[in-house]
């Protein structure tokens, strides 16, 4: 418990540091925070009134303190560009991002895990070749380019999947119809995120499985008549889970980063796209609010990965609590 409490305090301190640095950087950038001064249609008096209405006439320190005290209550202010509460904008965008990044992570884990295991079990087989050639090649391609290629081939030329958005413009009836509609919209962006993401998972799983399969207990089990399938899929796989869990924790920031690009390419209405437009528009409340959510998610993901690792390998509990 001490470990968990310690990690939570560290996570909160990291989050505060990230937000403070972001506020500082946005403050130091030249130009007007709201782009008000960029609109020559506004006279000095109108600019002053607009700044006051948006609370931008306050000194930076006071604005920072106000932001923090409100953020603790979940109030990130009002988006300057969208004229809506930041909390509402972020909550609307959070769901699609969780759906996209979560599905992509699940698919990349399952695919990488299955291919890595199979490749280790059958060297030289189809899975082995996929792990050695196809997945690394996809991993090397920038997600932006991969996304555009997927759109041109599968959306335009073949017409199999929609090119963009999370839902069809036409109304869809029934829960099943809604589910299928979401699913077909997910296929391309999830593939673009998950296929390259599966490459490191498969490599780690392959390496861990190879190590496990060479251990004396595996040979002993096989010599005692336990089937190879049982040894591989019941015992060795579990033993290879730990690096996988570590990989999930470490890969979360990359997945969130990749999701930003994929959300822009596929016009996916998630946090990445909201954040991108907020940054371009110098929408400071939305940038900071989005940062709290994204940084919070990444930090929480890492914490969760540590906890799962502790569950998978009980020896780690002793080490963390100082009883090693």
């Amino acid at each position: 418990m001490r470990f968990v409490a310690g990690r939570i305090v560290t996570a909160a301190a990291t989050l505060l540091l990230v937000v403070t640095l972001a506020f500082l950087v946005l403050e130091l950038l030249p130009g007007d925070p709201a782009g008000i001064a960029e609109d020559p249609a506004l006279g000095p008096a109108e600019q002053a009134r607009l700044r006051a209405a948006l609370g931008l006439d306050e000194p930076p320190v006071r604005r920072y303190v106000t932001f923090l005290t409100h953020a603790i209550r979940g109030d990130f202010g009002v988006s300057i560009g969208r004229h809506r509460p930041v909390r509402d904008v972020l909550l609307e965008a959070l769901g699609p991002t969780v759906l996209l990044a979560g599905t992509a992570m699940l698919v990349s884990l399952l695919l990488g895990w299955a291919l890595g295991t199979r490749a280790a079990e059958r060297p030289g087989g189809l899975a082995d070749r996929a792990v050695r050639t196809v997945l690394p090649a996809l991993d090397a391609v920038p997600p932006f380019w991969l996304g555009l290629c997927a759109i041109l081939l599968f959306a335009w030329k073949l017409g199999w999947f929609p090119a963009a958005h999370m839902t069809s413009a036409a109304p869809v009836s029934g829960a099943w119809g809604t589910f299928v509609d979401r699913l077909v919209h997910l296929v391309l962006p999830v593939s673009v995120l998950a296929l390259p993401g599966a490459a490191p998972v498969a490599r780690h799983q392959w390496s861990a499985m190879r190590r496990e399969l060479l251990r004396p207990w595996v040979r002993a089990a096989l010599a005692n008549g336990v089937s190879r399938r049982r040894v591989v899929w019941r015992r060795a796989v579990r033993a290879a889970l730990l690096p996988l869990v570590t990989l999930v924790g470490l890969g979360l920031p990359a997945l969130v980063g990749g999701a930003v690009v994929v959300e822009v390419v596929f016009a996916w209405p998630g946090l990445g796209r909201v954040h991108q437009s907020a940054l371009l528009g110098r929408d400071v409340p939305l940038v900071l609010g989005g940062l709290v959510i994204v940084a919070g998610a990444v930090i929480a993901g890492r914490l969760l990965a540590d906890l799962v690792s502790m569950w998978v390998d009980p020896r780690l509990r002793g080490g963390w609590s100082g009883r090693r």
Binding site: I151, L152, W156, P162, A163, A164, A169, V265, A267
Partner: peptide
Amino acid sequence: VPETTTLLAQLLAGD
């Protein structure tokens, strides 16, 4: 639709 190619594909595909 932030990306031009995506918009073009959507238009040509009838989306």
